[in-house]
Design a protein around this nucleic acid. Structure first.
Length: 669
DNA sequence: AGGTGAGCATTTTTT
DNA sequence: ATGCTCACCT
């Protein structure tokens, strides 16, 4: 990467980079060089003598944190770059909590519950707390608990309402397991820093300048955290975001954090980045026209020095099947006409279910594609088993992990024993492991079961001792624990086909290899490894080789990405403003979603909507999205599929079709 | 225990 | 249409 020069920045970017102290709000429209500006600012701070170790950059995703680190490394001295902290909110919280969680009544080796663990525990709690005839939806309870935590509401005193009781009990059980869910990582960090001025001072002294990316996505706890960590008076907090791209309100993001930034951090400097380096003017004009219709926003107007470009196409389709065929055909035509790689194309949609018809067509046409957002490697059974095993070895109080592995493989500690133990552990407020291993537990079981428990506990304890020595070969120890316990035999037995068995063993190997690699990288302990995995679950499509092809992606997942040629499909009333958003009163957020979609396109943008679509198995009529009315303008061309199909192919298109044919012939062996 | 079928809901998902 | 959950059966 070429050495960065300040002259390369535009005047607003430069002003942001040079801002020295006190709060700074950078309103960075889509494609306006946001990351570039943050990194430039960091580089300025360093050259002005701020020690790099005292600079903190916070992001939402690990990917963003990684990219930021890379770009920083390209800009400042590598020695200094290493000292700069670039981390996600959650990873930062884990660091804070691993050091001092004991100050708020947790042990520092607490476990982190992912959403699967969380749902599992909630279900269990519901079963315990509610009467037989009462029905509580676990999903609803989970959403409510998350909302409560994100607003820093404590569990209400018991038996006010069923949900309140579920929340209270859930939190009690988590605590008993010495575990935190994702929301707790934030909430407990806030509590730790609020209740312990000395801890707070320690962290405030650690960082002198703080940068927050994607500020429009922060929730209440994250805002609190920023306030608690920021140091300097006025605080040196630089936040970057775009309220027009706030699309995670349903997950607790508070747009008011950015809209009312001044009330949280008084007298900030506010800088707008409006020059766009991504899209042509027709695309930007379309986006601007749409987003103007939102009432609560910080007005921005994107512009580009690229004045000309293809018009935005809006095409009306008879049905969703035709839509998929058309989009795939159009992408192929553009590709052939300009000899482009498939990577230049993306199809963006509101719901994952919309990808299916596209996939069918792409497969039929033998077009390579990558589907963003599939199932995670970490949801595989054997991966969960191995991770639960490691968790259990690190923190035996982690009932959740213990429950997963206690009779997998079968050890003679069956459900009835577990049931009894669970009851006693709830009554005595002790962990499952402690309950099972207490001498008096033998009174509740047969001799045989007691012996099985003793053996298991011994195995865990013995492995644990080795494992916790610093130079231990952890992956070998875990491997031996699994083998000795008969895990692999059990795994093989449960597989229908030999391939499946091989596949699952490969999954185990992959985790253990990752563990070995982690240990050789830094003689880290297992805790680090588990933290990294629970906070950094790279999707399979991310880590596999990238030469993937055309991208199929949801509007949400597309935020932050860009593609030369974009197809935005399903722009229908009830789908793009999603039906549910209308009843929930969040149509503005849907408009922002549409805005995000439009601004992903660099060179060409085609928006389609269907007059009919298969919904829940049966055909239903669809009206165009009301947003399509809002984008109408001179650089938007509306047509129907029938008009396009009836038009004689242009010479260019005919050539392209011919080339396409040739290419297909060549690919066939 | 683990498999099968009826019944049911069905947006988006950074950590 | 499809996939998921739960209850009930082998």
């Amino acid at each position: 990467m070429s050495r960065f020069r300040l002259q390369d920045l535009n005047p607003e970017q430069l002003r942001a980079a040079r801002h020295d102290s006190g709060p700074l709000l950078i309103l960075a429209g889509a494609g306006t060089g946001k990351t570039r500006t943050i990194v430039a600012r960091i580089s300025c701070l360093v050259s002005e003598g701020v020690p790099p170790s005292r600079i903190l950059a916070v992001t939402f995703t690990n990917k963003a944190a990684r990219e930021m680190k890379e770009r920083i490394a390209g800009m400042v001295d590598s020695e200094q770059a290493r000292e700069i902290t670039a981390s996600t909110f959650h990873a930062l919280c884990v660091r804070i909590l691993r050091a001092d969680a004991d100050r708020i009544g947790y042990k520092n080796n607490f476990s982190i519950f992912d959403e699967g663990d969380q749902t599992g525990l909630i279900k269990k709690v519901i079963a315990r707390v509610t009467a037989q005839d009462e029905k509580v939806d676990p999903g609803l309870a989970k959403a409510m608990i998350s909302k409560a935590k994100n607003n820093a509401w404590s569990p209400p005193p018991e038996d006010q309402s069923v949900l309140g009781a579920v929340y209270a009990r859930y939190q009690r059980e988590l605590k008993a397991m010495n575990a935190m869910d994702f929301d707790d990582l934030l909430g407990q960090s806030v509590r730790l820093l609020t209740e312990n001025p000395d801890v707070r001072s320690k962290w405030q002294a650690r960082f002198s300048h703080m940068m927050v990316d994607e500020f429009q996505d922060t929730n209440r706890l994250q805002l609190d955290l920023v306030g608690l960590l920021a140091s300097g008076s006025p605080p040196n907090v630089c936040v970057v975001g775009d309220d027009d791209q706030s699309i995670y309100g349903w997950r607790g993001a508070e747009m008011s954090n950015i809209l009312e930034f001044e009330s949280h951090f008084p007298n900030p400097e506010i800088i707008r980045l409006e020059q766009n380096y991504r899209s042509t003017m027709p695309i930007l004009a379309t986006a601007n026209r749409l987003i103007k219709n939102n009432p609560r926003r910080r007005v921005k107007n994107l512009w580009s020095s690229v004045r000309s470009g293809d018009p935005v196409h809006v095409v009306s389709m008879p049905d969703d099947k035709t839509e998929a065929e058309f989009v795939v055909g159009e992408a192929g035509a553009i590709r052939n006409a300009h000899n482009l790689p498939w990577e230049h194309f993306a199809v963006i949609y509101r719901m994952n279910a919309q990808s299916r018809l596209l996939e069918e067509n792409l497969r039929r046409m033998k077009i390579p594609y990558r589907l963003v957002g599939g199932k995670s490697f970490f949801d595989r059974r054997e991966v969960k088993d191995v991770l639960a095993t490691i968790s259990c070895l690190v923190n035996p109080q982690d009932d959740n992990a213990l429950l997963r592995i206690i009779n997998t493989p079968p050890r003679g500690i069956g459900p009835s024993t577990v049931e009894v133990a669970l009851e006693i552990s709830a009554r005595d407020n002790k962990s499952l492991f402690d309950t099972l291993t207490a001498p008096e537990f033998a009174d509740h079981t047969t001799r045989k079961t007691a012996e099985a428990i003793r053996r298991f506990a011994e195995d865990v304890a013995a492995t644990r001792i080795y494992l916790l020595t610093p130079q231990a070969n952890a992956s070998a120890l875990v491997m031996r624990f699994l083998t000795d316990s008969g895990y692999f035999d059990d795994l093989k037995r449960s597989c229908k086909t030999p391939e499946e068995s091989l596949n699952r063993e490969a999954g185990v190997r992959e985790i253990l290899n990752a563990l070995a690699a982690h240990q050789s990288r830094r003689a880290g302990d297992l805790q680090d490894f588990l933290d990294e995995l629970s906070l950094n679950r790279e999707r399979e499509e991310d880590k596999k080789d990238q030469a993937a092809g055309l991208t199929l992606i949801t509007l949400h997942a597309a935020k932050g990405l860009e593609f030369p040629h974009v197809f935005l499909i399903g722009a229908e009333d009830g789908l793009l403003p999603h039906e549910r958003s209308k009843t929930e009163g969040t149509v503005d957020e849907e408009r922002r979603l549409f805005y995000v979609g439009i601004t992903r396109a660099m060179k060409s943008l085609t928006i389609t909507h269907c007059r009919q679509r298969l919904k829940f198995g049966s055909a239903s009529h669809c009206r165009p999205s009301p947003f399509l009315r809002e984008i109408e303008g001179e650089e938007v061309v509306s047509e129907s599929y029938e008009q396009i199909a009836a038009r004689p192919a242009s010479a260019e298109e005919a050539d392209a079709a011919f080339a396409n044919l040739l290419a297909m012939l060549k690919e066939e062996p």
